[in-house]
Nucleic acid binder design. Structure first.
Lengths: 180, 180
DNA sequence: CAGGGTTGTGCGTTATAGCGTACAATCGTG
DNA sequence: CACGATTGTACGCTATAACGCACAACCCTG
């Protein structure tokens, strides 16, 4: 029995309990046998992809939520201003939280300023939403020019950079990182 | 053979081709046998959870990305302003796109204005990031007061509402919806 | 060209996923 | 209390996941 099998055993029990379903009811909703559901919940069996898919549909959750729970609690969280360095002011609007796989920054880059960024981990997608000014984004080996109101997405698992094209005014953009 | 099995067959081939790995190399990286990888790619087998997990780790992708690809192409997308109605101006900064499971709105609500919202689908999480003004958010059967710079998350698969607490000035907030 | 290395497929074997059924335990009702 | 309904577990059977190995086809190098 593997760790993921154990984790999923616990998760399936959670999903079922949250809906107040018996094994029989869950079997009806998902099309997976009662006996098999029991085996999975006790960690005695590692379900196939086909069975996992049935479970996701029957429980009406996305595939990733089937495995990894989303924190359903409500609550405040803090935005945060990173101390300004030579060219950039970064305010973290939505800090990275594991269950949402998302992070959002409000970035201001001074007139003529530029910032390079290392690659993020494999598969991270970045969306740049220009709020004001003239911004250029470097990705896929070239610069892309953006105006206020423009938006641009690219893979952030490669080196990339931001540059304020104006020599007079700062530029401001929202930076959304989606980790999938 | 199920639809998801066929979909995954195609996806696994994609993942492997993208890295330029042979079946033997992929077997080494994932700990899943070459013969089994071949069976999966030809849609002849539905891998168990344990095997899926090994694949995710070996290919260094999140579990959901193992099944559903993220569009890796770069490109601009349009922000959009919804015509104002009686109390609200909505600008869609990031329209919903299926592969990111995310949507972002810039909302301005006039002095004293209020808006109720129906439930979204099961499991949607909403983050409200107040940019200016005094906002109250209704969720979990009660109102939560927020100031500029405050942020609040809650489950959006329940009825919820927004209200500008000020009778003098509009309030503005960013609204991030994460569908998981 | 021949030979060695690489690649993907097919086969047979073993372990286990998935099921229907039976049943013990528990619960609720008359 | 007895009885019926419900719930979760165990069992035996069938189908298939997963593997190691052999091999045909292809590619590259001397």
């Amino acid at each position: 029995m593997s760790d993921i099998q154990q984790q999923f055993a616990h998760r399936l029990k959670e999903l079922r309990a949250a809906r107040g379903w018996s094994l029989a009811r869950a079997a009806t909703e998902t099309g997976v046998s009662k006996a098999m559901l029991g085996q999975i919940e006790r960690g005695e069996s590692s379900p196939t992809l086909t069975t996992l898919w049935r479970l996701a549909k029957g429980f009406d959750v996305g595939f990733s939520t089937l495995i990894e729970p989303v924190d359903a609690s409500s609550g405040s969280f803090q935005t945060r201003v990173t101390p300004p360095d030579s060219a950039l002011t970064v305010k973290t609007l939505l800090p990275f939280v594991a269950d949402l796989h998302t992070e959002m920054l409000d970035v201001e880059i001074e007139a003529g300023g530029m910032r390079e960024s290392d690659s993020h981990r494999q598969g991270v997608i970045e969306c740049v939403l220009v709020q004001s000014g003239e911004l250029a984004v470097y990705s896929d080996a070239r610069w892309h020019r953006l105006q206020a109101g423009d938006a641009y997405r690219f893979r952030a698992d490669q080196p990339h950079a931001y540059r304020n094209e104006s020599q007079d005014k700062p530029a401001q953009f929202l930076n959304l990182l989606v980790y999938r």
